[in-house]
């Protein structure tokens, strides 16, 4: 079997396990290429349907094309999309772009805190109403106990320690030193109340695998990933104040694949355009422990 088929099967297996085991399940969708591939895999796993809500954390600083792309796909695929945000921090201007806090604090409050509150139902949530054609307040306060996330082991050191099913306690804490065993394809699916589980169907994929799969399956991704003639493109997406495009002339998927295989990116980290990774060692790990994806 070729590697993409193997990865696809494995991811589908994990998605189906998650769907069977968790009554209150959601999938995070960051709009980026990885979680978009994940969304596509869910449609494969469930024969064209996405039988769980998608959760997106809005920081109000996302590159505008991302939100536009999100809403178009939600309508086209009839997705059940819920978004949440840390409105308090945004209103009080406790953000890096407002010049009031550093990058790490900003990430923590606009992403980690927002995510935690959105998942446990304490924070405001908005849900897309297909009949009204717009977002309306989500009346459900349900906490999600299973959260599907599109992280990959090759992205960054700390992510290489993840499990496919990785429990977090009520504080979203990740206890790296005491991870549950995972033998073969048997995952941890039993929990005491108060814990929730992050589920990682893409753990074994590499950045190259993702692009190869996007090419093979003809999956649409947001156009920010491609050079539009200015010699720059995004390699990884986030908030515009902290995500810089990279210099690259790749205009389409095959060119990106070529660039990754042989070109200048083959030895440079994917997240090199992300500023928050640069503030000293361990930043990302600190964020991850606090619930950042």
């Amino acid at each position: 079997m070729i590697i993409l088929d193997e990865l696809e099967s494995q991811s589908i297996y994990i998605l189906r396990e998650a769907y069977r085991e968790f009554k209150s399940l959601c999938m995070l969708w960051s709009i980026g290429k990885d979680s978009t591939v994940l969304l596509y895999l869910a449609r494969k796993a469930f024969f064209g349907h996405v039988p769980m809500p998608l959760v997106h954390i809005d920081t109000r600083y996302k590159i505008p094309e991302m939100i536009e792309y999100r809403d178009n796909l939600v309508k086209e695929w009839k997705l059940n999309l819920i978004y949440g945000m840390n409105r308090k921090a945004i209103d009080e201007k406790r953000t890096f772009p407002d010049g009031n806090v550093d990058r790490l604090t900003c990430c923590k409050s606009l992403k980690s805190d927002a995510l935690r509150q959105t998942l446990n139902g304490e924070g405001e949530r908005f849900i897309f109403s297909h009949s009204a054609g717009k977002y309306i307040p989500d009346t459900s306060r349900e906490a999600y106990t299973g959260v599907i996330v599109g992280v990959r082991a090759d992205e960054e050191g700390s992510r290489s320690k993840e499990r496919y099913f990785s429990p977090r306690d009520s504080e979203s804490d990740w206890r790296i030193e005491d991870q549950p065993p995972e033998f073969w394809n048997q995952y941890k699916t039993d929990f005491s109340s108060g814990t929730h589980v992050r589920i990682h169907p893409l753990l074994d994929w590499t950045e190259l695998n993702i692009w190869e799969y996007i090419e093979r399956e003809n999956i649409g991704v947001v156009s920010l990933y491609f050079d539009k003639g200015e010699g720059i493109r995004y390699r990884s997406l986030g908030c515009y104040p902290c995500t810089k495009p990279v210099e690259s002339k790749s205009k389409n998927v095959p060119e990106i694949i070529e660039e990754l295989r042989s070109g200048r990116f083959s030895n440079i980290a994917e997240r090199s355009g992300r500023e928050q990774d640069k503030d000293g060692g361990g930043t990302l790990e600190t964020l991850r422990r606090e619930g950042y994806m």
Binding site: A153, D154, E156, G157, S158, S160, K161, I176, E177, Q179, T206, G281, G282, E285
Partner: peptide
Amino acid sequence: DALKDEQSQGITIDSARCF
């Protein structure tokens, strides 16, 4: 030792992956 924890403990605690 990509993780701080590990370095302070001095033992590889988990099945890390490298490519």
